[in-house]
């Protein structure tokens, strides 16, 4: 039985390799997550050093970092398709064009872009996938129920410089679906000031960084005692900053932790 299992595994492996000899490099963690989610990870040959979810990514070779891609590595991995998510640089573009490698910049900035992004990835890779999984995401997003009361949420991205995520950011766009009031701006991340805090008067403050004394500065507000402070751990920060299939987890976390019943 064990033998048969091994044999069939090797057989399947070969078949899949012959039939689907696609080689994909992903230069964005959310794309990597999406590829894994769609079970396209068998084609994935390269990733960035900060693609760390799911755990199996560790087995895939690193072909770049947050600064630049490793050009020699990319050549050696012989990819057919390279994915970026809003981080395609002129230099990388020039390089991939020169080497005749197909590249796609799948921008998934807001929650609405996720299903679109997944659809385009499916179209590009063009292989069979589990439709029920995509439907699950779609339904999860559609199933978000608006809360009755208007609560203002401020999302701190970094303390120094003081940067917040706006309604155009990924986390902001999710919270907005729940009916929270988020600071409105065209840019996803903007500089913020103490005066802005006074005028915005948040009811909930979310910290997407590990600086724990961050809440001190809100003591200038009259309703300081009533403000709810939420500190996200590293894993949750990843979930809330990478627009991808883990939106399901993101929605669950918000329903569990943020919404008071």
């Amino acid at each position: 039985m064990e033998r048969l299992k091994n044999f069939s595994f090797i057989f399947l492996f070969f078949i899949s390799n012959f039939l689907n000899a696609q080689r994909i490099i992903s230069f964005a963690p959310n794309i990597t997550e999406t590829l894994f989610f769609l079970s396209y990870d068998r084609y994935l040959v390269g990733r960035t050093s900060f693609c760390n979810y799911p755990k199996n990514t560790e087995k895939i070779e690193i072909a770049g970092s947050f600064i630049d891609i490793d050009y020699e590595k990319v050549v050696s991995l012989k990819p057919d398709i390279v994915f970026f998510s809003g981080n395609l640089t002129d230099k990388s573009e020039k390089f991939l064009k020169e080497k005749n490698i197909k590249y796609y910049d799948i921008k998934m900035e807001k929650i609405d872009d996720i299903t679109k992004g997944i659809d385009s990835i499916i179209k590009i890779v063009g292989k069979d996938y589990d439709t029920s999984k995509v439907e699950k995401i779609r339904n999860k997003i559609l199933g978000i129920k608006k809360l009755g009361k208007d609560q203002k949420v401020l999302i701190e991205v970094s303390e120094k410089p003081f940067i917040i995520a706006t309604s155009s950011s990924y986390i902001g766009s999710i919270l907005k679906l729940f009916g929270f009031k988020i600071f409105e701006d065209e840019k996803p991340y903007i500089n913020f000031s103490y005066e802005n805090i006074l005028s915005f008067k948040p009811d909930i403050v979310i910290f997407m960084h590990s600086f724990k004394n961050g809440k001190d500065k809100y003591s200038i507000l009259k309703n300081f005692d009533k403000i709810k402070f939420v500190f996200l751990d590293d894993e949750k920060i990843d979930i809330f900053s990478r627009s991808g299939p883990r939106v399901i987890d993101a929605i669950d976390i918000i329903e569990r932790d943020f919404c008071e019943r």
Partner: peptide, 17 residues
């Protein structure tokens, strides 16, 4: 331009395509 471009242009890099 992306910030990495500046980073490499101002300090020099031989990683030319």
């Amino acid at each position: 331009r992306d910030i990495t471009f500046l980073f490499y242009a101002l300090m020099g890099s031989f990683n030319h395509i």
